[in-house]
Amino acid sequence: MQLTGFHHLTAVTADAPRNHAFYTGTLGLRLVKKTVNQDDVSAYHLFYADGLASPGTDLTFFDWPVARERRGTQSIVRTGLRVGSTASLAWWQQRFATNGVTHHGTVERDGRATLDFEDFEGQRLSLIADDTPGPVHPWAKSAVPAEHQIRGLGAITLSVRDLRPTDVVLTQVMAMQHVREYVAPRAGADAATSTFHVYRMGGDGPQAELHVQVEPGAKPASQGAGGVHHVAFRTPNFQEYEAWAERLAKLGMPSSGPVDRFYFRSLYFREPNGILFEIATDGPGFAADEPMETLGERLALPPFLEPRRVAIERGLKPLVTA
């Protein structure tokens, strides 16, 4: 029983229309599910992904009217997004310059060419050149040429003060392997360096790597717009999902217990430094309630929220304004 990589990453925005414009327009991702936070239906939950809404390609956002994140440790500090080549990084660097996107020059980090950038709220992102073999599903209607489109999630970086308790959960509870470490500039705003520890799940390349940055003296982050809410890891089927729930319970790891999100099943828990993790199934998928060809074009609600559609729609702002 092994996790097979990242399923999705969920972040926070305070401006859903501008968020939609940036991630579909500037980044060329497909809005594959326009729905609501099932625990707070006043907020959108927007899912951006590849052309087929594949598990492992989803970058998602809760729309909450909150202040900006206060950066710090005990948090997810950078989200990697995979592209196919270093030539794509050069293409993206020019696109960012043309569109006024905050970005830095391409660097080599942990042996891979990487281009760091931020969205309009300071969400910290990186494009990672990755030629690992695997399926690629470009979106035909994207503003980005197919050869340069984002292929999915890459390495995701956490920051913790103390590695030891997190290492125990990653290796002994979640069955990851500690495979290497490296030194690189901190994910913050200064020139200091940190040690990063790389943990690998099942699968190949950065889509199966969790990087943990150790910052012993840093202050904890305060969640807000431009920050990350949680990261979700893939499990391929319901049988293994149930086994994970049993494993957490047997090891005495507090969790949400099984949660049916309709598009996938979820299991939530916090690692010892307080960062929220989720284990999510690959299926049923986003085509469970609308055709693949028209994903994201209407507000989709799971069956238990459908009777409240009129009230929910009334409380949401339009994503596209005139």
Rank of each mutant, 00 (worst) to 15 (best):
G285L: 09
P133T: 01
T35W: 02
F196L: 11
T106Y: 03
R112I: 01
P145W: 02
H148I: 04
R234Y: 12
R18N: 09
G105C: 07
A14Q: 11
P65E: 01
G227T: 12
R95K: 06
S266D: 00
E215Q: 14
V136C: 06
L267R: 01
E240M: 15
V179G: 08
P258W: 06
T102M: 11
L251S: 13
F269I: 06
V107A: 15
G5R: 00
F269Q: 04
A21R: 04
G122I: 07
G72S: 11
A129W: 00
V32G: 06
K34Q: 14
P220C: 06
L59Q: 03
Y44C: 02
A175W: 08
P165T: 10
K34S: 06
E147R: 13
D110H: 15
A143Q: 14
V212M: 05
V169C: 10
G315F: 08
F264Y: 08
E240H: 13
G56A: 05
T79V: 15
P185E: 04
N99T: 12
G296Q: 03
S222W: 11
R151W: 01
G283A: 14
G51R: 00
Y182I: 03
G152Y: 02
D50V: 04
V214K: 00
T79F: 09
A87Q: 12
G51P: 01
G111M: 11
G56W: 00
W139Q: 01
Q239M: 13
F6Y: 15
R298A: 14
P303A: 02
G111W: 10
Q239S: 15
V36E: 00
A189M: 13
R70L: 10
Q223E: 13
F6A: 02
T4L: 14
S75K: 00
A191F: 09
L31Y: 07
A146N: 03
D40W: 11
G257T: 08
Y48L: 05
R82W: 03
A245D: 11
Y182H: 05
A218T: 05
H8E: 07
V214Q: 03
R298F: 10
W244T: 00
S194P: 00
Q177K: 12
L52G: 02
V198P: 01
E306G: 07
E271C: 10
Y44F: 10
G226T: 07
G227Q: 09
F62Q: 03
H230M: 10
D130E: 07
H137L: 09
R109M: 13
K34N: 07
A90G: 12
R270K: 14
V77M: 03
E297S: 06
L158P: 04
G315S: 12
T60C: 08
G111R: 11
S222V: 15
G134Y: 04
A287E: 15
P216M: 02
G227H: 10
A189D: 15
R308E: 14
A280F: 03
I275G: 03
H137D: 12
E306N: 08
V169R: 08
A243Q: 15
W91L: 02
G315N: 13
T193N: 12
G100K: 05
D116A: 14
E240P: 06
A208F: 00
L170W: 05
T114G: 09
D130N: 07
N273A: 15
N237Q: 12
K250G: 07
G134H: 06
R314G: 08
A208N: 01
